[in-house]
Structure formats: structure tokens, C-alpha cells
Design a protein around this nucleic acid. Sequence first.
DNA 1: TGTACATCAGTGAACGCGCGTTCACTGATGTAC
DNA 2: TGTACATCAGTGAACGCGCGTTCACTGATGTAC
Lengths: 248, 248
Amino acid sequence: MRENNVVPDEAARKNPATSIRARVRAEMTEEIKSVALRHLATDGTALSLRAVARDMGMVSSALYRYFANRDELLTALILDAYNAMGEVTENADATFADREDFVGRWMALGHAVRDWAVAQPHEYALIYGSPIPGYQAPETTIDPATRPLLVLARILADAHATGALSDSGAAAITPAALTTEIERISELLGAGIGVQPAARALAAWTELYGAISFELFGRLNNVFADPASWFDWQLRSMAGFIGLPAAR
Amino acid sequence: MRENNVVPDEAARKNPATSIRARVRAEMTEEIKSVALRHLATDGTALSLRAVARDMGMVSSALYRYFANRDELLTALILDAYNAMGEVTENADATFADREDFVGRWMALGHAVRDWAVAQPHEYALIYGSPIPGYQAPETTIDPATRPLLVLARILADAHATGALSDSGAAAITPAALTTEIERISELLGAGIGVQPAARALAAWTELYGAISFELFGRLNNVFADPASWFDWQLRSMAGFIGLPAAR
DNA sequence: TGTACATCAGTGAACGCGCGTTCACTGATGTAC
DNA sequence: TGTACATCAGTGAACGCGCGTTCACTGATGTAC
């Protein structure tokens, strides 16, 4: 026995994903990202690799053991942000008790998005703000980016299944090509609802993010003293617009 | 008579605002801004004074005769963008013939905002995108920024004056503090309408900009083939949400 | 179990570049008498 | 009308700084026999 050393079991020794070196590597990678996030707050997307390295007490070239270049680090931050948003929204709906209170579920979803955004405004700006000059997000960001919208789709599908989702009242949808597209999107999301509710839900989704961007990007400064309650009203009125029924 | 030289009249000679030197100065200032706008497209807000000077065939220090520093140039661009947006929206409403077609006026306003934004996406991002790291907009930007919203306020006031603006249907407004705030905003804008329509109009305003940001910041890529008609439907359905009556 | 070798994280110097801003200056244009 | 002086746009050098990325290297840790 080699003194007190932890003896890694066979699986751990063989599996590079859990070897000691791999674990340290994963921890370093996480630390680099978290330091980079701090810099995002002050420098925005003009994030500097050298500054990150400096903060970690490393030489800048060392970062290249972890990320091939600056864009790859940015991509990692973006992916993390999308996934964090995805997790937070999925949890919000999963832990909402009354499954048939569709308005409640929608509000919980909306507040989850906003709470996360308000807590990490710079990560929100990274994924929902102006595009980063000279940066092209890879395809791998698409799926994580869709997660919150899939939560909404599930709420709508559930409401539709109970027959509670009303299917009229808003403006007629024209031209025909637009109807087709909205149907396609609705199917893609697995909502399986009518084109009218789908269109209204997408409009509400637009307003949700519009509201958060207005607040975080400073357009509500000196306008609303308590943006949270204004946001709450917007969510509630959007629930009505979508046609969601309240709890029974 | 001095050959063909234009002889400036007394007023022009005396008034520094129109002297030849002042005119050249104004032209140079405009050219600097337009070159800077081109750079905005490629570099975003990481706009470089040296690059602008290079494009103009000047030495970088020469720009300091026109702008005290980089932030002042940015401020000038931001002011221009707000004013361009203000002009375009004011014109859209002023030239709309049927003054009692309130839905039509709202749609014209919305399309004017989007058309301008689509034509100059980088200027739109400058004023409605993520905040610029390390930059604080001066107070002088507030008034120009409000111009498009004032156009909406006028449409609402006109609709209200004809008694055509409905005042019910959306979610009740709570808490009381929120009601007070919305009333204050409505008065500030001179809309003179009820708190319900005011709240709904502000929500529609949020969706309007949310929709444009979604489109320009790439969140609708591969989603809607024709974002203009989707935007048009959103505008129309928001008109109903606000409670605007169509043309008679 | 011990030893030789391979892997890999981190170093430090360098390349080639860019930036905002200051400052003393030149020379053309405008102003006052 | 002509001349002396003031104003001002633009120059060019410099200051002090930062950046992303490459590359040969050292030395510690892991692996194979």
C-alpha cells in the first residue's frame, strides 16, 4: 500500500475522463471560464485572454492548453449560458406543483428567465444582446438555445391536451406562407397546437425577452422604480393574450 | 468684382455658424461620423479612432480637432441614431393620410421603426443593443430617445379623443405603486389615456422592439423565412391587444 | 516493484501588431485696423 | 486696399500601453513493461 494515497479503481485509471489528470484539467477549464465571466462584466465581449491568464497567475500562452483560441473560449461561455438558462427554466416548470395551472406555469417560466438574466446580466447580454463583431456561433449552440422555448411548448401542449387552450381572438394570419411556417415551428417544438395559439405564444415569447432586454440594457432606467412588478404584469397579460386558462 | 468667387453676404461673414471655415468644419465632422459608422459595422463598439483617421487619409491626432475623445464620437453617433429614428417615425405618422385609422397609424409607426433598423442594423444595435462597456450615455440622449414613443402617445391620445380606445380586457394592474407609475408615464408622454390602455401600449412597445432585436440579433435565423410578414402580424395583433379601433 | 519512456501543463521570450492621447510645430485662412 | 496678427486644421513624433498567438523549453505526472 502506498501510504495514504488514494488508489484509483481500475475504471477510473483506464477511463481518461476520470483520471486525476483529467479531473484537474476539467477543474482548470472551469476556473478559466469563471474568471473569464468576471471579465465579461467589465470588458464585455472585448474579453482579453491575457487579462484572464493574469488573473489566474498564469502566463497567457498557458491558456492555449485549454482553448485553441479566444473564439473557442467565447463559445464555451455562450454554451454554458444557454445551458444554465435551459436548466433554470426546466427546473422552474418541473417543480411547479399544480400541473393544470397553466397561467402559473407560464409565469414561473417567465420569472425564471428574468431572475436568471437579472442575476447574470452579462451572460444574458452575451447570448441575447448585440452580435459579437467577427464572431460566428457554431451550430452546437442551437440545441441548448432552444431549451427554454421547449419548456413553453410543453406547457402549451399540456394546456391543449386538456382542451383548455382557446383558439381564436387574435388577428388573422396572412399570408399563407406565414401560416405554414408557424405550423412548422409548432410541430418542430412538439407543441401540437393550433396555428393561432402558436403564433400568439411566439409573440408572447418575443415580448418576454423584449421586456428583459429593455430592463437590462437600461431602457427602463428612471422609468419603472420596480421593474419586477411591471414584468409580472406583462407576463400576466401575455398569459391572457396567449389564451392560457388560469387554475381551476 | 473678384472673378467668380462667391461673395458671402454680410450675415454669413459675421455669423460663425455659416462662415466658410465653419461650413467646412461641419462637413468634416459629418464625414468623420459617416466613416465611423462604416467601422461600426465591422468592429462594433470596439470602434477605433486611428482606423477612422486612416480611412480619411488623416493622422489620428487630427480627429481631436473635432471630437475631444473616443466617447464623444460615440455619443455623436448615438445622438444621430436616435434622431434619425425620431425623424423617421414622426414622418411616418405625419404622412399617414387617414388620421382616424388608428390601427393603420400604429402599423405605419411600427414598420417605420423596423425599416430603419433593418436598413442600419449597426446603428440600431448601438442604441438598442447591449450596453457599451465603460461607456455612459450623457443626459442629452434622453430627449431624442423618447421621440418615437411620443409618436405612439399622440396616436393613443387621438384615439382616446374620439372615444374609440377601449379600456378593459387585460389583466388587472397591481400593486398600486405600479398603477401610479404607469399613470405618471402616461401623463409624461401627454397621452392622457387610462392606465389600462397605457400599460397595454407600453407592453406592445416592448414587443415591437423585442421583435426587431430578435430579428436583427439573429434569433430568427432559420426560423422565419420572411421576418417582415411575421413582424406585420405581430404589429396587427398588438393593435388588437392595445385596443385600437380599425378604420371606419 | 522498479525503471524507462511518453504525455502534457505551464514557462518565458518573441513576433507583429494595434490602440488613445499629448504636444510642439507648420502653414493656410480669417479678422481688425 | 493692404498689412499685421490671431485663429485654427492638420502633422509627425512620441508615450505607455495592450493584444492574440507561436514556439522551443522544462519538469512533473502517468503508463508500459
